[in-house]
Amino acid sequence: MNIIVCLKQVPDTESQIKIGSDGVSIVTDDIKWVMNPYDEFGVEEALKLKEKFGGEVTVVGLGPKRVTESIRTALAMGADKGVLVTDDALEGSDALATAKAIAAAIKDLEYDVIFTGQRGVDDDQGLVGAAVAELLDIPQLSLITKVEVAEDGNTVKVERPIEGETLVIESSLPALITAQKGLNEPRYASLPGIMKAKKKPLEEKSLGDLGLDASEFGADARKLKILELTPPPAREAGKIVEGETPQEKAAELAKLLHEEAKVL
């Protein structure tokens, strides 16, 4: 069973986000870059499938050279090889263009299952997985918390929690699955794993290598144009509820929620 995991590098979730002087990008100087947390679930699930069915796990990342580091992390966890789609012309591409480049990198590889995170915790679009599936003309199974591939490797049964219920969905393979939290607990890379990862193949591909036209990528080719980035609307610290005892404070709070905030 051959499995592909798509990987994005994002600012660590503890990062403060500051807006740059151009007003349309963020300041990246102090950012600690990590593998998108939802992609970690994809890597883990891919490794579990490999342990059961054999085969190879290929990690496909896209972005500047620093993304190599996150691909190496996935290789250290146990993935077999990596592909980094990297090209200066990709900088600032929107989700659709990104998906086109990723799909182009995947289309000539062998795969039964493709994993992506359910969304990148930076742009929060949740679009690339679906678009890659569409471009490869395979089904997408998004926001998945359980994956069961049939013994014969031809079909998969997955669980998708929606509001108030969980759907059990069956699909033919190949299919693209987007990982939701709860799917698994990603393993840590072991020290021998980290040593081995250094020797695993990691190939770099430019847009030209993939037969793509650079003019269709990058900030200038965006169909979703960013007009401006702003900090979140300021939330002023409110009142500290007064009272001598917990009971008095609770009584005052209930009164405020009823009379002032009108939410009770």
């Binding site: 979730t13 986000i17 929060d124 169909k223 979703l224 007009l227 401006e228 980035l229 979140p232 609307p233």
Partner: peptide, 18 residues
């Protein structure tokens, strides 16, 4: 207008020939 980075910033966006 859409929150990005889970609301640590807001992006105002429009559509270009789309």
């Amino acid at each position: 207008t859409r929150p990005i980075y889970a609301g640590k910033a807001y992006a105002k966006v429009t559509f270009e020939n789309s």
